Simulated assay, not measured.
Amino acid sequence: MSKELLSVVVPCYNEEETIMPFIEKMKEIEAELPQLDIEYWFVNDGSKDKTLSVLREISTASDSYNYLSFSRNFGKESALYAGLEHARGDYVTVMDVDLQDPPELLPKMYHIIKEDDYDCIGTRRVTREGEPKIRSFFARKFYQIINKISNIEIVDGARDYRLMTRQMVNAILELKEVNRFSKGIFSWVGFDTYYLEFENVERTEGETSWSFWSLFKYSIDGIISFSEFPLMLSAIVGLFSFVVAIIALIFIIVRALILGDPTQGWPSLVCIILALGGLQLLSLGIVGQYLGKTFLETKKRPIYVLKEEKINPRGDEDGL
């Protein structure tokens, strides 16, 4: 009887120092999962260091190691999609190569998904020790905001690290949008999910490529992808400003008719004009964000472009 296949998808961007420690750690985990065949899909997302060289080397050492290399940096979301698209496993897991996603949770995740009626076993951090406080503050606020203004629920501290059934992976691959926000997509497709909790783990080597600004832009993409509330908010603010302006205009006219006072206060008038102009520009900016995303989707550009790949045949495919 053939074993079930587990595919491990590993996005990589400038991770030459972390790949080998990751592989060594995963060898220990493989020993705890003898009932599974395991294949790896490393996705080189346009790295500037020697990540690709390391991937070439390990792919010749074992048929378990496959790699995909992009023509440039397309972003982690594209790397995740490419890995999921190529993964051949009955189960698929997504992991960061820097070991911030604890591999030791994987055996427990597999046993839960096999024994209980779940389609996905996710993970979430319950602490953010070692992370800058300002980043932790805005991360928590992001989860609070998006859960209130969208029709999806994203668990606070949820990671991309999760184990999914083939059925769930196929559903995710049906969503071919270019502007991807995987945490929202995982939630949107549904399926029963159970979350394992763990404490924050520091990177083994190197430095993260995620700056505060890149995380902020990523959060904005998530809100725009899964909520129309900003559009509604701009309309409400515009309506409120219009009503206030009408009331103020009536007050000025009545005062001039009754008291005969000329309208004074050009500095305050300038301030009001600037305030309203700012609100208009803000609203236009919000609409522009949605319009820009729509424009990119209508171009039908590919989610990623491959420059190089090494796909090793599975053991049961050798005779085909």
Rank of each mutant, 00 (worst) to 15 (best):
K133V: 07
I172N: 14
E131N: 12
S2N: 09
E197R: 09
A256R: 13
G288V: 13
D318N: 03
T93L: 14
K148G: 06
N14V: 07
K217L: 12
A79I: 01
D119R: 07
H111P: 13
S283A: 12
M168L: 14
A139F: 13
F70P: 12
Q167S: 14
V97N: 10
I185Q: 14
I58L: 13
L233H: 02
K114R: 14
V126I: 12
S214R: 08
L257V: 06
N312Y: 10
S234C: 10
I185G: 04
D160P: 10
I246T: 08
E131R: 05
A87P: 02
I250V: 07
E30G: 03
D49M: 03
L80Q: 13
P262T: 00
S53M: 08
N66W: 01
F138G: 11
V92T: 11
G222R: 06
V92M: 00
F198S: 04
V94P: 00
F181W: 10
D160M: 02
F242C: 06
R88Y: 00
M20V: 15
Q167W: 12
I224Q: 05
M1A: 06
P21S: 12
Y65H: 10
L320E: 13
M168Y: 08
L257Y: 09
G260S: 04
D63H: 04
A248F: 12
G184H: 02
S62G: 09
R125A: 03
N312E: 13
V201G: 13
F229H: 05
R166I: 14
E202R: 01
E77K: 00
G278E: 12
K148Q: 09
W41V: 14
K299Y: 14
I172P: 15
Y110A: 11
S234P: 10
K310R: 15
V97I: 15
G75L: 04
G222F: 08
L306C: 11
L284K: 07
V126C: 05
G75K: 10
L6R: 15
P302T: 13
W210I: 15
V169I: 09
I134P: 03
G285C: 08
E153N: 07
F22G: 15
E228A: 06
E297P: 11
S71P: 06
I58N: 15
E85M: 03
A31Y: 02
A275W: 13
P267A: 00
G319R: 07
D261G: 04
D221G: 02
G157S: 03
I146C: 04
E174D: 10
S214I: 12
F186N: 15
D318A: 01
I272R: 15
L281I: 10
L99R: 03
